[in-house]
Amino acid sequence: MGKSSKVKESSKSIKHTKEVKDSKKESKEDKSLYEQRLPFVTPFSTPLADKKLNKKLLKLIKKSSKAKDCKRGIKEVIKAVKHNNKGLVVLAGDVFPYDVISHLPVFLEDHNIPYVFIPSKSDLGNACNTKRATSTLFIVPGSNKKGKSDEYKEEYEEVMKLVKTL
């Protein structure tokens, strides 16, 4: 009886080490979330933020949403643009059906407002502290009267430079 229990224990440890090695291989081969979401992006999603800019945008959105300087959703964005607000529009690239946001790039270009696409609407929703996914977001620094836009002003300017180079 003693020998069979030792054999079982050693076989368990061998299985455990194989599982650990397999999980390490999977983590190396595992794609990042950014790369996993790229196949679902609409064909007209240009300019699309690269991985680095995407990360900076999401951080900027978190800070601007804390300062309440964000307009979320298509209706709010269009209304803010019509009221001549200036800022940056972030659009989700995985919106379906396409017709929901297909008119926005032309509308934004007519009003000289910079915009950029990111691959995921769920990331956009999470960044602005909502439970729901968001297809569009308009960052309008200084729109809130409390004046908290100074906290993210440098990041905003840096992101704007990167977006204008796209």
Results as ranks from 00 to 15, higher is better:
3 K>C: 06
3 K>I: 08
6 K>M: 08
8 K>L: 10
10 S>V: 11
22 D>G: 08
22 D>L: 12
24 K>R: 12
26 E>K: 13
27 S>A: 10
32 S>M: 03
34 Y>G: 03
35 E>G: 07
36 Q>F: 10
40 F>K: 09
44 F>Y: 15
45 S>M: 02
46 T>A: 11
48 L>C: 03
55 K>L: 14
62 K>P: 00
63 K>E: 10
69 D>W: 04
70 C>W: 06
71 K>G: 07
75 K>F: 14
80 A>E: 02
80 A>G: 05
81 V>K: 01
82 K>T: 09
84 N>I: 13
85 N>G: 13
88 L>E: 03
91 L>G: 01
97 P>F: 00
97 P>A: 03
102 S>F: 06
103 H>T: 10
104 L>Q: 06
106 V>A: 13
109 E>Y: 09
114 P>C: 08
117 F>A: 02
117 F>N: 00
123 D>E: 14
127 A>T: 03
127 A>G: 04
128 C>P: 07
128 C>G: 13
131 K>D: 02
131 K>T: 04
132 R>N: 07
132 R>G: 06
132 R>E: 04
133 A>F: 07
134 T>N: 05
134 T>E: 06
135 S>K: 09
136 T>R: 00
137 L>F: 04
141 P>R: 03
143 S>R: 09
145 K>E: 08
145 K>M: 10
149 S>L: 00
151 E>D: 09
151 E>T: 10
155 E>D: 14
157 E>A: 10
159 V>L: 03
